[in-house]
């Protein structure tokens, strides 16, 4: 199993398409930090909503933690898109390339191959989120330094500089968990078709539609909202609330986990019985 997994990881991470995802993040993260550094007063005014005019705040509010949490908003659409590039390619990409014929005529069972590929999709998602957060923290430390973590929202929250690293770390872990559900959906769609474009477009279409239903304040959607995984994709934001609602986190994590398992088991069931005609 280990050698199969190692080879799946090699295949995924040596692909030019995978490199594009990391290169895109590698370009966007420093640019955003640079923009915040360049116009720090303007951004501070927008996000702190004049807080600094009414209150005396000690410390640097526009710091690496703030910009990192700002960048994590890309977890709604941008990061899921990059994740589908890798996860959606796992099975359908092999079908497109004709290499499934080589993989599946070997003694290794389809279950072993599916597990290795799913694990690769999860590792790829993990790597993308950690790369985003890690790179942002590193670049931010160089440009903006540390300080209390300003969390904009309906109620503005300021977390102490001592608490901020742990909160960002928890947010990153929860973000990975949410992105695994996205990866699982892309993996499921990847098991259904023989063209890698299908799962990428399909996953994004599903996410966009469900996000609209999950986030639009319309009573019509209120009934279905608790059943959609997109409703819980912002679970990482729970890590930045004061106080942290562990109950809410556990609920969101459980529902996202349930979806991930459901998507994977369905993908495995389909793929294990699929006729390989590509």
């Amino acid at each position: 199993m280990r050698s199969v997994l190692t080879n799946e990881l090699t295949k995924t991470f040596r692909k030019w398409r995978s490199s594009i995802s990391f290169l895109a993040l590698g370009a966007v993260v420093p640019l955003v930090h640079l923009a915040f550094w360049w116009q720090r007063d303007r951004f501070l005014d927008i996000y702190a909503r004049g807080l600094t005019q009414d209150f005396l705040i000690f410390g640097n509010l526009l710091n690496t933690y703030f910009v990192t949490s700002f960048l994590m908003n890309s977890l709604w659409i941008h990061i899921p898109f990059l994740i589908t590039l890798g996860a959606g390619d796992q099975l359908a990409g092999e079908a497109t390339g004709g290499t499934l014929r080589i993989l599946l005529t070997r003694p290794a069972s389809r279950t072993k191959i599916v597990v290795a590929k799913y694990t690769t999709a999860l590792v790829y998602s993990l790597a993308l989120v950690l790369f985003l957060v890690g790179l942002s923290l590193l670049v931010g430390l160089a440009f903006l330094g540390t300080g209390p973590l300003l969390v904009p929202g309906r109620n503005i929250v300021i977390l102490s500089a001592a608490d901020a690293p742990a909160r960002i770390a928890l947010a990153a872990v929860l973000a990975v968990w949410a992105m695994w559900t996205v990866a699982s959906l892309a993996f499921l769609l990847s098991s259904l078709v023989d063209n890698a474009i299908g799962p990428i477009v399909g996953t994004m279409a599903v996410i966009i539609v469900l996000l609209v239903v999950s986030t639009m304040p319309v009573d019509l959607f209120a009934e279905v909202r608790p059943y959609l995984f997109t409703t819980y994709m912002n679970v990482w934001q729970q890590a930045l609330r004061q106080p942290i609602s562990w109950e809410e986190i556990v609920r969101s994590v459980s529902i996202l986990g349930g979806y991930s398992v459901g998507f994977f088991v369905t993908a495995w069931y389909i793929f294990a019985r699929k006729d390989i005609l590509s």
Partner: peptide, 26 residues
């Protein structure tokens, strides 16, 4: 077996492709 056209991971070397096949044979 070789089923229809011989398709491989074009971005990998021939040796790496065969290593992938061997990992599936144990």
């Amino acid at each position: 077996g070789l089923v229809e056209r011989a398709d491989f991971y074009l971005y990998l070397t021939a040796r790496k492709n065969l290593e992938i096949v061997t990992s599936l044979r144990g």
